[in-house]
Design a binder for these strands. Structure first.
Lengths: 160, 160
DNA sequence: TCCTTGTTGCGACAAGTTCGCAACGGCATA
DNA sequence: TATGCCGTTGCGAACTTGTCGCAACAAGGA
């Protein structure tokens, strides 16, 4: 799990405030999950995050991680992201940004691109009203590009 | 399931050729699945497709549909598409196009946009080599926009 | 201390997907 | 026609991801 560390305590403070403003306490479990999650740039799945946090807090239950992430989405502190693969992934960044998705292992990384900051939304029509967008670039991450065997994705469940 | 019908036999012929070139026979099951799938514009999930084809071929097993779709992806005749939700969806269109994704019900529709036909791919770097991209617009489809209750997505398992 | 409110862990469950295996079918060869 | 080979199929079990109900628990206020 990639964790930046920088600004992490500041982000935690913001999250704590958002929770409190809704009357939700910052429990030990939530704190541990937030500390791990907020600095992440690799868009963990709920179960990955659980495995990670449970290393320090073995009693932590999966349901708690799922519930906490759901709460964060509701508070606007995280977004669910879509990528080809079966797991739901979460992103602590809620501002406009884009993703690099590895076709083989399913890794998702952020991608900054100023030229993509103002794409034209589809014209408002009777059929669909667009509110936001994100661009997904597909290709190969460094690790997978190095591997010679191209027949199978590194992780079975995340293909292209 | 939305099926266009037009060009369907032509697409089927192309698919049969691609299968044959790999030494794979066009079995009755594969033919039935392809006939349903190739004209689809609504990006069916494997299970949806199974239910649909099984109406005419009751003995068809779910595993066969999953395996056939997997084969089509490997042959470049279909792509898995990213959308928020837990099901894997498939798209018979492999050319550059974009998607409109309803935040509430999870419906995915194609979106054509000439101005998005030539976005700049991220610079080739040591970290990631991009090969393609697609833009995902999120918002509300007509049916969901009409519904007044905005608290819950129409389908529970498809969030934002 | 008691009550209320919300959180947590646990285990069961559901849906989607994959896997192993035996049976089957087509094709080439003898 | 018989045989062997090889890929496909259906079946059902198993696995993964995510949700739910429930009892225990913790914190805060009366």
């Amino acid at each position: 799990m990639t964790s930046e560390g920088a600004h992490s305590s500041e982000l935690l403070e913001r999250a704590a405030t958002a929770l409190r403003s809704r009357g939700l306490p910052l429990t030990l479990q939530r704190r541990a999950i937030l500390e791990r999650f907020l600095g992440c740039t690799d868009h963990p799945a709920a179960d990955t995050l659980h495995a990670d946090v449970a290393a320090q807090m073995p009693a932590l239950s999966r349901a708690t991680v799922y519930r906490t992430l759901e709460t964060l989405v509701e508070l606007g502190l995280a977004v669910r992201i879509a990528h080809p693969g079966s797991e739901q992934r979460y992103d602590p960044r809620t501002d406009l940004h884009h993703h690099l998705v590895c076709d083989r292992c399913g890794a998702v990384r952020d991608h900054e691109a100023t030229e993509l900051a103002a794409l034209t939304l589809p014209r408002r029509s009777r059929d669909f009203v667009a509110r936001s967008y994100s661009v997904q670039f597909r290709g190969l991450c460094a690790a997978c590009a190095r591997t010679t065997d191209r027949r199978r994705p590194a992780s079975r469940r995340n293909g292209a």
